[in-house]
């Protein structure tokens, strides 16, 4: 059994972090990993910050990832990447969808949306990959497939065989949406190269 790998998926309620985590955990289980996953439901889903935590490997007990312990952070939104950046390990990889979803606190003028998030992250974080996942998903056929584009990117940085990812898509995504999502995944893979 390989060492423990921690993956944080962060975003805004409604962005599809949960489906993405289902694909990821499917791959991990198929590859023989022990898996724990944690998410918080309830109030936060009404447009609040959401986080899904996936831990895999031998001796995984806690379902929760601690600051400084994530090997990968997949941020579905820029500000959420900013918020969770300190959870990344020093040599961790951060994948950032450049989409901006402005929180109400900013909309009403109580505070401002930080500028240059991607530059700040690239300076602070070991490896930071920014991409317009929303655009790629739209090109694949539906903006809602952004989550699967991001899984495509992640797949290039994790050591799982590509077949295993493709199989997970088949198992986890409803048949009528499969082709679209396979395209979205491929766009993500291509973006990471």
């Amino acid at each position: 059994m390989p060492k423990i790998i921690n993956v944080l998926l962060v975003g805004v309620g409604g962005q599809g972090t949960i489906l993405a985590s289902k694909v990821l955990t499917h791959v991990a289980i198929a590859e023989g990993y022990e898996v724990k996953m944690s998410e918080i439901h309830g109030m936060a889903q009404r447009g609040g910050s959401v986080v899904t935590q996936v831990r895999m490997g031998e001796g995984v007990y806690s379902p929760v990832i601690e600051p400084g312990e994530a090997d990968f952070i997949v941020a579905f939104e820029q500000l959420e990447a900013y918020r969770w950046a300190h959870f990344l390990k020093r040599d961790g990889v951060m994948i950032v969808n450049t989409q901006k979803i402005v929180p109400l606190t900013v909309l009403i003028g109580a505070t401002t949306y930080p500028e240059n998030i991607l530059d700040d992250l690239k300076e602070r974080v070991g490896r930071c990959i920014g991409l317009d996942g929303l655009k790629l998903a739209s090109e694949a056929g539906n903006a809602k497939a952004t989550n699967v584009v991001l899984m495509g990117v992640l797949s290039k940085y994790m050591d799982f065989p590509e077949d295993s990812w493709r199989n997970a898509l088949v198992e986890r995504i409803p048949a009528k949406l499969l082709e679209l999502n396979q395209r979205a995944f491929a766009f993500g893979v291509a973006e990471a190269k």
């Binding site: 805004v12 889903q45 009404r46 959420e80 950046a85 929180p103 109400l104 606190t105 602070r124």
Partner: peptide, 13 residues
């Protein structure tokens, strides 16, 4: 490990 950046909160709405 302190937060790396000062991020505006995103409460549910």
């Amino acid at each position: 490990v302190a937060p790396a950046f000062d991020s505006p909160i995103r409460p549910p709405v």
